[in-house]
Amino acid sequence: MKIAFTAKGTAWDSMMDPRFGRTMFIVVYDEQSETFSSFDNSVVENEAHGAGTATAQKIFELSPDVLITGNGPGSHAAQALKQINIRIFTEAHNMTIKQAFEKFKNGELKEI
């Protein structure tokens, strides 16, 4: 299973970024190969509008099975993500990627 996180850094101990559209990085953990890859999303930071749909596009390209984020995607991004077969978990605030992953494994995150 491939799991995508919205994060402020690219390591296990990096903090989660609660924002979806304007997240600083998208980090993908592949459970099978136990590999970590990341995508710098800072270009989207400068967008006045459409940050959500731009990031949703990126998620589509990275094709994870699960997305873990904080506040949750806005309405436009949610509509785009519906086109993709992906499960979305939110409320991973104020924690590291590692903590968010553990909470997800223990079923402690809210699925939308």
Partner: peptide, 23 residues
């Protein structure tokens, strides 16, 4: 279309083009 839209109002997700009217 997706490339030229500066407002990310047009997305190409696989075999679908999505238009976001509010954007």
């Amino acid at each position: 279309c997706q490339k030229v839209c500066n407002f990310h109002a047009v997305l190409q997700l696989g075999p679908t083009i999505l238009v976001f009217p509010e954007l």
